[in-house]
Nucleic acid binder design. Structure first.
Lengths: 109, 109
DNA sequence: CTCCTTTGCTACACTATATGTAGCATATTT
DNA sequence: AAATATGCTACATATAGTGTAGCAAAGGAG
């Protein structure tokens, strides 16, 4: 069941876009799927599955449905790819990689 | 059970910092808690609960434990606050609000 | 001191979500 | 025709999240 901005979502009756986004990103594998698609261009269903540590097909399909409904991912001849919106979102997420590395260092110290 | 970068986490044996981050952000309420703390400075447990649509105390405590173990949140005299690392992470997340608004517009069109 | 309120938080029964394996139906390759 | 690869569903099991009640400790008021 996909959520569309403007409609209420889990834990927020407002339907504010940021809450809709948090709702979907707060589900397991969503961030990872976006991450893998961002790195590697188009991927088949099974490709994606193996990139995502062999996530179960049930859940992968469920997440892809969500992401397609939210216009972040599409399935075309090449396989699954990010839409324009999906690319722009993943660009916002990209800096988290460098951030996480610095963070990990600070945890060691 | 908190996860520390360098150790394997759900769905990733590598323990890469970004995967540890995705693991915790991919749990329900984590993004929301960071968001609310980012907006509103220190908050008591019960304050946070009401800001987060009355999330159950069980889960709120569980997430706060995770976030404290990962050095993103602390509890002091004032209540719960973001650490320096927590602030720097939430700054990376802040642009998502504007992004989500644009995204919502594009979905309407 | 006693009573009342607020704090962070736990217990527990219930529901929803995620996992893992098997395998189907269609399309393409050999 | 047989083999392979595709996206995906079924289903039983395990894990994660929810909601209500309430406890123990700390502080304030009388």
């Amino acid at each position: 069941m996909a959520k569309i901005p403007g409609k209420p979502v889990r834990g927020s009756s407002s339907g504010r876009p940021i809450m809709v986004l948090f709702d979907v990103l707060g589900k397991r594998w969503t961030l990872r799927i976006l991450w893998e698609l961002h790195k590697g261009k188009a991927a088949s269903f099974r490709d994606l599955q193996s990139k995502c540590d062999d996530v179960s097909p049930t859940l992968l399909n469920s997440r892809l449905k969500d992401l397609r409904a939210l216009n972040l991912v599409v399935l075309d001849d090449e396989g699954y790819t990010l839409t324009r919106e999906g690319v722009s979102l993943s660009r916002k997420l990209a800096p988290l990689d460098a951030w996480a590395n610095e963070w990990a260092k600070s945890l060691d110290a």
